[in-house]
Simulated assay, not measured.
Amino acid sequence: MSHERISPPTQLGSPRRIKAVFFDFMGTCLDWHSSAVSALPRTISEVARSKLALDWRREFFDELHARSGQGLAPEDIDITHRRTLLRILGREPYREYSHHFQGADGSARLTYDNEGYNSPSVESAVASWYRMSAWPDVLPALTALKTELGVELFVLANGTTRLQLDLVRSSGLAGTFDMLFSSELLGVYKPEPEAYAKALRLVQVQPDQAVMVAAHAYDLRAARNFGMNTIYVSRWTDDVGENMDDIRRENNAFLSEGGMLGLVDAIKALG
């Protein structure tokens, strides 16, 4: 994969009116944490499951950024999730929890909690990423963008197309987006400039006519460098290691700390 800088397309005299809004998906639109925690063994305390889920997510991002930095093509997200979960379970303090998962140690042993529920497998934990609920503010915000502004809405997220298709259905967002752009479909991970360039070229929209909405600062930094408008949505599950004061100083057009409430007014102000 080439790492040469890709210049944003230019079009003299093009209007600046916002035509398209691109959304990161998991974390930004969807509550991945609840889904992941519910799929982890109930023989582990809820507090420990929550921390395990958060650390699994961070490990996933570290892996993704490492692959992107090495110029590697996107891989099936299930493979990445499986590998990172097993890696986490091989470390302290989670090593003691590995036997709670069927297959984590190569055994077929079943374990049960006090209520008689058998422990899930690593595979069922990986599969949980295909079933998520949307944050409560998301559907009203997306509906308002469609009805009040008439803009086109797109998912632009790392992962597979199958993952995105399943997630829009399980989250109740089916039919809301005009197109789903996955790293698998585009052949490149965000935050590589080519990811944003390909999506914009395909929908024939200029960078300054588009908005990137995300709960991940790295995503918005890359989109802004490419010339897109950016809106940061604060979610407690994401950007755990980021400094919010730094994000406020990074010239995001708006910083939304109330989820997607006010998103319509924020985009109206862009023109």
Results as ranks from 00 to 15, higher is better:
173 L>T: 05
165 L>K: 15
141 A>V: 08
162 R>A: 15
124 S>I: 09
224 R>C: 00
156 L>Q: 03
224 R>P: 03
234 S>I: 05
119 S>R: 12
161 T>N: 12
125 A>N: 08
136 P>L: 06
199 A>Q: 02
203 V>P: 07
224 R>N: 00
164 Q>L: 09
170 S>I: 02
238 D>R: 01
161 T>L: 14
153 L>S: 10
171 S>K: 02
220 L>I: 00
161 T>R: 14
194 E>L: 12
221 R>A: 14
195 A>L: 03
221 R>S: 13
211 V>Y: 01
166 D>Y: 09
150 G>T: 10
207 P>Q: 04
120 P>E: 00
166 D>P: 04
146 K>W: 03
163 L>V: 09
232 Y>D: 06
170 S>M: 05
186 L>H: 09
123 E>A: 07
231 I>S: 12
159 G>M: 09
214 A>Y: 04
192 E>T: 00
202 L>T: 14
145 L>M: 04
162 R>Q: 15
183 S>D: 04
158 N>Y: 04
234 S>L: 14
142 L>K: 11
164 Q>R: 06
166 D>A: 15
120 P>I: 00
195 A>F: 02
186 L>G: 05
159 G>P: 10
149 L>G: 10
165 L>S: 14
219 D>W: 01
227 G>I: 04
222 A>L: 06
160 T>F: 05
163 L>G: 11
157 A>G: 12
168 V>P: 04
135 W>A: 06
164 Q>C: 00
173 L>P: 04
178 D>A: 13
209 Q>M: 03
129 W>V: 01
131 R>D: 11
134 A>S: 13
144 A>V: 10
149 L>I: 08
156 L>S: 02
169 R>I: 09
164 Q>V: 02
169 R>T: 09
211 V>G: 02
150 G>Q: 11
145 L>Q: 02
178 D>Y: 08
126 V>N: 01
121 S>D: 00
171 S>A: 08
133 S>T: 07
119 S>V: 07
231 I>E: 12
179 M>Q: 12
131 R>I: 10
200 L>M: 07
239 D>L: 02
226 F>H: 05
161 T>D: 15
172 G>A: 05
162 R>N: 15
231 I>Q: 13
214 A>Q: 04
180 L>N: 02
130 Y>A: 13
228 M>Y: 07
